[in-house]
């Protein structure tokens, strides 16, 4: 099973993402509502990919990525951002933060799982 961690402060979007990712039977999905929760889950679970919302209260997605990179066990986890801000300058910044991809919101729930599969390749 491929472990997918989805981090978003919006409960509705978390739920939809869970269902959308669940369309791929090979995915095991876990959800986190904040960066702190994400770190707690990831440390024990070690996901194959983490999908991070960019704009979150307290700790945002890019900061979470940095924090993951600072932890040995999470340093190599591939990360993709899910963002409602599709400013090209921001996209460039994400690329520099060695994210494997950027998924724009609103995403197509029927193709989200296959998009994540592609990023894993």
């Amino acid at each position: 099973m491929t472990r997918v961690l989805y981090v978003d402060d919006e409960p509705d979007i978390r739920e939809i993402a869970e269902m959308a990712l669940g369309l791929d039977p090979g995915f095991e999905v876990r959800l986190a509502a904040s960066a702190r929760e994400a770190l707690t889950i990831a440390e024990g679970w070690c996901p194959d990919i983490a999908l991070l919302d960019v704009m979150m209260p307290e700790i945002d997605g890019p900061t979470l990525l940095k924090m993951m990179r600072e932890r040995q066990e999470l340093a190599n986890v591939p990360v993709a951002f899910v963002t409602a801000r599709a400013q090209p300058s921001e996209l460039q910044n994400f690329a520099m933060l060695d994210a494997v991809g950027v998924i724009a919101k609103p995403f197509d729930p029927m193709t989200l799982a296959s998009t994540v599969r592609k990023l894993l390749e």
């Binding site: 509705d12 939809i16 269902m19 409602a84 599709a86 609103p106 197509d108 729930p109």
Partner: peptide
């Protein structure tokens, strides 16, 4: 502009996602 784009897209993600799943036969 940035806030609007974010604040509008966030609920739209939920609405579009829900409808997409429904229309796609996921449920």
């Amino acid at each position: 502009v940035s806030t609007v784009s974010h604040e509008l897209r966030t609920p739209l993600t939920s609405i579009g996602g829900s409808l997409g799943l429904l229309a796609g036969g996921a449920v």
